[in-house]
Amino acid sequence: MPFWDNARFACIVLVVLGHAIQRLIYDSDIAYAMYLAFYAFHMPAFAIISGYFSKSDPPSRRQMVRLMTDVLLPYLVFEGLWWLTKLLVEGRADPNLTEPSWTLWFLLALGIFRLVLPYLALLRWPLLWSVLISVGVGYLPNVDSTFSLSRTLGFLPFFVLGWWLREHDVVERFGLLRHRPWWLYAAAVALFAVDGWLAWSGIAVWRDIELRYWFFYDDAYTDLLSHPVWWGGAMRLLTLVIGLILSAAFFVLVPRRRTPLSRLGQYTMYVYLLHSFVLYPFRESGVLRDLEPTWLWLPTVCVLSVAVTVLLATRPVRWLTGPLVEPRARWLFRDPSLLPGRRNDPTGSRRPKAPSR
Rank of each mutant, 00 (worst) to 15 (best):
M1G: 12
N6K: 03
A7N: 00
F9T: 00
F9R: 01
F9C: 00
C11Q: 04
L14P: 01
V16Q: 07
L24Y: 14
D27L: 09
D29F: 04
A31H: 09
Y32R: 04
A33I: 04
Y35E: 05
Y39C: 06
A40H: 02
H42G: 08
A47R: 14
Y52P: 02
S60L: 00
Q63C: 02
V65L: 10
L67C: 05
V71S: 13
V71N: 13
L76P: 12
E79R: 03
L81F: 14
K86F: 14
L87P: 12
L88S: 12
N96C: 05
L97A: 03
L104Y: 09
F113Q: 03
V116A: 08
L117G: 09
A121I: 14
L122A: 10
W125M: 06
V135A: 09
Y139I: 05
L140Q: 12
V143S: 07
S145P: 13
L149H: 09
F155N: 03
L156T: 09
F159L: 02
L161K: 04
W163C: 05
W164H: 10
R166V: 07
V170T: 14
R173Q: 13
L176M: 14
H179M: 01
P181I: 00
W183M: 07
Y185K: 14
L191F: 15
F192G: 06
L198N: 08
A199N: 08
A199L: 02
I203C: 05
I203V: 12
V205L: 13
R207P: 10
F216M: 02
D219L: 13
Y221C: 06
W231T: 03
G232D: 06
L237R: 00
V241T: 07
I245F: 14
A248N: 07
A249Q: 02
F250E: 05
F251D: 02
L253R: 06
P255V: 03
R257L: 12
R258D: 08
L261N: 09
Q266F: 02
M269H: 04
Y270T: 00
V271Y: 02
V271W: 01
L273K: 05
H275P: 07
Y280M: 10
F282W: 14
E284V: 13
L288I: 11
L291D: 10
W295C: 00
L296P: 07
W297C: 08
W297V: 05
L298P: 03
T300N: 03
T300P: 04
V301H: 08
V303W: 07
V303S: 10
V306T: 08
V308M: 08
L311E: 03
L312E: 05
R315V: 05
L320H: 04
G322D: 15
P323L: 01
L324W: 14
V325I: 13
R334K: 15
D335L: 11
L338A: 13
L339W: 11
R342F: 06
N344I: 09
N344Y: 09
R350Q: 15
